[in-house]
Structure formats: C-alpha cells, structure tokens
Nucleic acid binder design. Structure first.
Lengths: 194, 194
DNA sequence: CCCGCATGTCATTCCGGGTTGACATCCTCG
DNA sequence: CGAGGATGTCAACCCGGAATGACATGCGGG
C-alpha cells in the first residue's frame, strides 16, 4: 500500500487533531471507493491513516458518521456554477470517451459515490447529499423551463456514462469514437440548452 | 412479504429437491437484487423459500456459491430481441418514470446485476454480465450504422436511468413527468432508429 | 414391512468487525 | 512546572450472521 504508507508518513508526528482527522477522512474515501461501505473496514482505514481504530470512532462517532463525512467531502458543488454552458456537452462527452485512468483523481470520488448508490444502506445518505449539494446547483445552473425533468435526465445520462466507463475502461476508437462523442455531446447539450 | 409467502406456498408439500432448489434460487435473486450481497441474509432467503437456512448451505455450499448460482441464472438469455423497435423508447421511458417497486419483476434482474458491482468479488462477473446481457443483444437488435457507438450510448443512458431510480425512488409527477417521459423516450428512440 | 438414502430441521459453534470504556501520553496554559 | 484537558492506544466486549454436525422425517425399493 504505497498510498497508505504515504498517508501515514505525511501525517505529522506532533499531535494535531485537524491533520489526523483529515488523514482518516482521506483513507476512508479511498477505502470506501475501492471496497464499498460493507467491504471497507474501520481497522484497515485506521491503519492506513496511521491511527487506532477507536480514534476513528471518537472523531466521527461510528462507521456511518465516517461514511457520511466522506460522502459530504466528496461532493463539491461550488465548481458547478463555473462550468461553461456553451461547451458543456462536448467537454463531458470528450472526457467520457477517454480512458478513466487518465483522470484517476476525479474517478476515485466518482467510484465512491457509485458504490454508495448501489448499496441500499447508503443510498439514502447519498440521495440526500446529492440532492442538497449537486442537484440543487445543477437546477440553478441550467435554468429554463421544466428544470426538474431536465436536471434529472441530465444527471441520469451523466451517471450512466460514468458507470459504463467504470465498469469497462475500453474507450471506443476511430470513427465510432467520433460518432460517440458527437451524439453524446448533442444529447447533453440539448438538456442544458432548453 | 407477499412474494415470500407465494414462493413458499407454491412449493409443493412433497419433498422435491429440484423444486426447493429453484425456490431458494428465486428467493435469493430477489434478495440479492433488493439488498446486495452483504445486505441479503441467508436466513431471510431461506425463510422466503420456506426452508431452513442450513439447507441453503447444503445445496449451494455457502453464500458465495448461492450468489454465483443466482448470478449465473440472471445472465440467462432474455427477451431483448423481442422488444418492439417502434415503441421501445416510450416503453422504457414510462417504466423509468414509475415507481421502481411497481416494476420489481422487470427491474430486479437489472438491479441484481448492478448491485454486483459493489462486491469486488463479483465485479469481473458484472462486466461479463453486462457485455452478454446488454451489449451483445443490443448490438444485434439495433443494427444500422455505428452500432458500437449507439449501443454503448444506449446502454449508458439505460444504466443511468436505472441507477438514478435506485438512488431515489421518487418519480416525477404532473407536467414534469410528462416532459421527462417525452424527452427520455425521444432520446432512447433516436438511438434505436439510426 | 422395514431398511437406507435423500431431504429437511434444530441447536450450537465460530468468527469478523464495530463499538466501548479504561488507561497512557502529550500539549497547553496558568 | 504541574494540573487538566485533549489526543491517542489497548484490550475486551458484543452482536449478527454464516457455517457445521447431530438429529428427525419422509420416500422408495427389496
């Protein structure tokens, strides 16, 4: 575990609540992304953060609390408003047509969210977080008529592209790729435009 | 649990290994679809099949064996080829606009496959399942030019709608619902048509 | 009719992993 | 410098749920 060692090593020797908390959260996000809620173990997370498992409990009040915190930390709504409405479709389409592991850092948080989505226990948590921190901003961003329907459809298509990519990281090539980008871009853009 | 009672009741009083095995497998598929691997409990599955938990073990050699059997059973060739090309978009859109739990019979196998993604053990199987269950048949079914790009996009949109529904089983209502159906249908249909 | 196998049940054991509370160590501030 | 709170550790506890083996019961053939 190179990342694990790094996480533990990067944490200062001095006692620093803020830093340890961040270390735990970071380790938790990786583990939840990799293994899902049930497959991620508190003891492993703690070990990766270079800390005892009981401490995790003290800071986050249990596994669910940790998960909720990690979830909250993984959704960054602030950037949404800065997206370019004119080129949104093509940008996303191009990204989705490339290799997932080319944007590993982004994908980790997406993976995390998807694992949460497919787990009945965590789905409600995700739902709430997504509604508050994601759908809201998106609704505001796209504007226009029938915002609710368009926002939902947009989110669905986006999620679908993401899942397909995560399941199978073999992008299309050549002309098929061009067509894919073109049609995906048109699809997304039409939802943004009206 | 109406379905549970039904399952148990349908099972013949007479001792019949084949029938009980099928009952267990059926209950397992429902439970795995609804709750995922970790959330599905052997005792519950056994109860729904009207059988003792130990028997499940005897037949399938453990939980993993049962899961593998259920997964294999879910990959069985299905009715994609029989879908109506003319009304496909609207049918799927309408289905996705309704409550997921009202469509359990049509959705549960899809849900089951998606849930498999949460378990690292079965993730590779999921890829294979998606290829066989979605991509292969869909490619053959839609035909025409750029089959690869269209099939992928179609699958992505489909999966996305499904995941969105899994996360939040609150369908739209009123005019927003109508718009949602209309646009979703158009989106899907255009991918089928050309 | 009854022996023997197949089918099904019950109670128990076992184990992973989250949680808890007592204890140790460090940092800070008066 | 020395309380006392904050930070961190350790060992035990507890619980759910899967696995196991001994036991019961129905079924079918000789």
């Amino acid at each position: 575990m190179t990342s694990a060692a790094a996480l533990a090593a990067d944490r200062p020797r001095k006692r620093d609540a803020e830093a340890t908390r961040a270390a735990i959260l970071g380790a938790a996000k990786l583990h939840f992304a990799k293994s899902g809620y049930d497959g991620a173990f508190l003891r492993d997370i703690a070990a990766d953060a270079g800390v005892d498992a009981a401490l995790v409990n003290r800071y986050f009040g249990g596994k669910e609390g940790l998960f909720a915190a990690a979830l909250k930390d993984s959704i960054a709504p602030d950037r949404i408003a800065q997206w370019d409405r004119a080129t949104f479709g093509r940008e996303v389409a191009t990204m989705m047509a490339g290799h997932a592991h080319a944007q590993v850092d982004r994908m980790h948080s997406f993976q995390f969210l998807l694992r949460a989505a497919t787990n009945p226990l965590t789905a409600p948590l995700l739902n709430q977080a997504v509604q508050e921190r994601f759908m809201g901003p998106i609704r505001a961003w796209i504007g226009g008529d029938h915002v609710e329907a368009r926002a939902r459809l947009l989110a669905s298509v986006f999620i679908g592209l993401l899942v397909e990519r995560l399941i199978r990281d073999e992008p299309l090539t050549g002309q098929e790729r061009d067509i894919f980008i073109e049609r995906t871009a048109a699809m997304l853009q039409s939802l943004v435009d009206h």
